[in-house]
Write a protein that binds this DNA or RNA. Structure first.
Lengths: 319, 319
DNA sequence: CTAGGTGCAAATAATTTGCAGAGGC
DNA sequence: GCCTCTGCAAATTATTTGCACCTAG
């Protein structure tokens, strides 16, 4: 459970200027942040009433609107004819699976869907501010008997777990890519760059694996929980396509170009998913890695330019 | 504009058993089917009242529920706190872009998103009955000035246009694939199969192109309308990957195998999109092509088996 | 002191329902 | 004649608002 201090700091960081504090609102926000799942306004009123009878339904509605404006709460619509609310604290944006049998909702995220959405929006010149993806149907528990899965882990933990898995696969494939590239590269400078990056990826890999272990130590049942983050191309690491491509490659420049492409994808991945956390340490680690991948990227580009100049020099000399 | 006869037949085909007809309901259904776009219950009441003052709001609500149950109407929720309704007649299922500026909604479809959704559902063992994808934001007209694009074409026409484009690209790439495969194949039987299929694809191509031209003749501005159907892998035809793959191939069996894979994708495409039409001639054409592609597929598989037996025979004879 | 914030009760807004009468088969 | 459909008005549900009072800065 999160300490009150942490959520208080979180709320303070979002509290809009020119709004006065009030004990009622603080109490509502506090109760709301202690919940998980998707509450209706009425659910929240009931929860509040357990702690304080003197809070009116109107105030709860007003506070919900206030929290939404502040970015503390997100309004979600499951087509029930009323809204539900989920909080953003340590809770990245996501999509929903909604079971019509048990009225439970599950969360997931798909990089691939997000990307397709961006492509559609771009083609239509549409600026997306909010993407809603909701799959209605029947969950596993309702289809089979009723052994409802133990749903314990927070979205944040699941997100961290899956993002780390992808990151680890990426670093692993990156290490392989750079090791192979170093072995096949003739240009000495380029080779030493590949060697350096191979070592760097190895270092990242160790840190990520340590973090993954730590995560599992904190929540041992995390590994058995269902997949949350879907990211097709990255299941084997963002460099795995590059490793394949390396096989049909002859020049050092080609290897650098492949590295650039992979590294760019990798940078984007860490940046994008680092930013997905509304708040957390995971965010810090991912953004730090994003920076390092960007450094790698720049290094590769620099090296590519040098090699290109060399070739041109040769070309000119030869001509 | 659709003839009344056609929509009447459509409604009759969906009318549930044991329900009796009534002039009021018929009138409401008729008015509803004449509209396009997403109507609120109130919009519909207003429209009805223009033709008949004696119809009550309750009846409209009840008829809307009746139409939804019959599959004539689809309830859509744009998070406005009330529902809207769109009809299914000649109107395939789709996703929505919703502009918060002008409250207009646009429709689109993405094969890729649909596929990702299926993958997520399968991984979570979730049975999806309805997939909602809604992108909220600002449309082009609201972002720039106000030259609102002429939105005239029906979803069905746009769907037909884009599906035909993909189909044409697929047949074109299929023809190229089979022509090349025939040229490089040593086995006489297999070669003649490839030649036959090349001719078949050429025939399909002509028919599809004729249909496409006809579509444009009916609605000349169709080509300038925005993209409706998004299907990444198929922009260059479902065989284009096969054409590429053919370059790195040596055996006749490999060529057959690539053909099988492409043909399977192509069959799926025609089947899936043929079925998307709630009702139409496009459906018939697509399903007919799906059948023919399935025949191709079976032919290829048969040929593949024969070639495999030959090889085994040789292998045994040689051993 | 003054701009918010709060409670209460009334207002809205979309949709549903009970009931008595009308109408199709 | 029976069962469904319909109109009307009242009920229900989720949410918002007017207004008088309260409270933090």
């Amino acid at each position: 459970m999160q300490s009150e201090k942490t959520t208080a700091a979180y709320v303070d960081s979002l509290r809009p200027a020119g709004s006065k504090r009030s004990s009622k609102r603080d109490r509502i926000v506090d109760v709301f942040l202690r919940q998980q799942g998707h509450l209706t306004a009425d659910d929240l009123v009931d929860l509040i009433r357990k702690e304080d009878q003197r809070i009116s339904r109107a105030t709860v509605y007003r506070t919900l609107a206030w929290m939404e404006a502040a970015g503390i709460a997100r309004k979600v619509d499951f087509g029930e004819g009323r809204f539900r609310f989920e909080h953003s604290y340590r809770h990245p944006r996501h999509f929903h699976l909604i079971c019509k049998g048990c009225n439970q909702s599950m969360e997931f995220l798909s990089s691939d869907i997000e990307q397709m959405i961006e492509e559609v929006a771009e083609a239509r010149k549409f600026t997306v501010t909010q993407a809603v993806v909701q799959l209605y149907g029947t969950c596993e528990a309702c289809t089979t008997g009723r052994p409802a899965t133990t749903r314990l882990a927070s979205t944040e933990s699941l997100f961290a777990r899956d993002a780390l898995r992808i990151a680890i696969a990426t670093e692993r494939s990156g290490r392989e890519f750079y090791t192979r590239a170093a072995a096949m590269t003739r240009d000495a400078r380029a080779r030493s760059v590949f060697e350096r990056l191979s070592t760097a990826e190895d270092d990242h890999l160790e840190r990520l694996e340590a973090r993954y272990k730590q995560l599992l130590a904190e929540e041992p049942d995390l590994e058995s929980q269902p997949q949350f983050l879907f990211f097709r191309g990255a299941a084997n690491g963002l460099f795995s396509a590059g490793v394949d491509a390396l096989r049909n490659v002859t020049g050092d420049k080609d290897a650098l170009m492949i590295g650039i492409r992979c590294e760019r994808g990798s940078h984007r991945f860490f940046k994008r998913y680092g930013e997905k956390f509304e708040d957390s340490e995971g965010k810090r680690v991912f953004l730090e890695f994003a920076d390092e991948e960007r450094d790698h990227l720049e290094l590769l580009i620099r090296e590519y330019r040098i090699l290109t100049r060399k070739d041109q020099g040769k070309g000119k000399a030869g001509a």
